[in-house]
Design a binder for these strands. Structure first.
Length: 190
DNA sequence: GCGTCGATGGCA
DNA sequence: GCCATCGACGCG
């Protein structure tokens, strides 16, 4: 079942782990591609030094200040688009970065990383601001999913001082499609 | 299997 | 002058 906007209207630190095991549905020219989310990160507001909104309200971050359930897509390193889902409520800029997923239904693609995921699902800045209840791009539940969730520090934010240690990355440790094994230990690596 | 490095463009 | 990245390359 497609999630409605209320599903997204809560703190990113709650939404991010809950999105593990959920399914991205992407429709491209009448074809439907589905992928199971296995890695996310929470960006928890203006006070979070790793959150783009900590630098203030700008053209780029405008979407994050709006209502929950919209896509925040931006370009990084001049090369890759990053797909986020806006969380929380108006004027509280929180978002969840979707970092990795496993293709379903026998479709094969490498979605093990935020840049590879957007490339594989054809998500670009053209989707910035779209409401995620539309038929072309949305998230559905998988009631049968046996998800496991482990929290680790976020990737690629060494500049964020004390925030770089916060356990705001969430992964399904049993997945083979993670962007990195950082933060996983012992049994989780087998 | 590691570490290092360059590409590439929008943003402040 | 940075980056919420990726893949190529060199090592030995």
């Amino acid at each position: 079942m497609k999630f409605d906007l209320l599903f997204y209207a809560r703190p990113a630190i709650e939404l991010a782990p809950d999105l593990i095991g959920k399914i991205i549905v992407r429709r491209i020219r009448q074809k439907v591609f589905r992928a199971r989310i296995v890695e996310t990160e929470a960006y928890v507001g203006s006070h979070d030094l790793a959150c783009h909104a900590s630098k203030g309200r700008t053209n780029r971050t405008e979407v994050m200040f709006g209502p929950a359930g919209r896509a925040y897509v931006y370009l990084i390193y001049g090369v890759y688009d990053m797909f986020n889902i806006v969380a929380s409520e108006i004027d509280d800029p929180q978002a969840v970065l979707i970092r990795a997923a496993e293709p379903l239904d026998g479709w094969s693609a490498d979605l093990a990383g935020p840049g590879k995921l957007t490339r594989g699902l054809l998500i670009t800045r053209a989707q910035n601001g779209v409401i995620l209840t539309n038929d072309r791009l949305h998230i559905v539940d998988d009631p049968a999913d046996r998800r496991q969730v482990v929290a680790t520090p976020r990737i690629g934010i060494d500049y964020a001082r004390e925030w770089k240690h916060e356990l705001l990355r969430f992964v399904d440790p049993t997945s083979n499609a993670l962007s990195s094994k950082k933060g996983l230990t012992g049994a989780a690596l087998r």
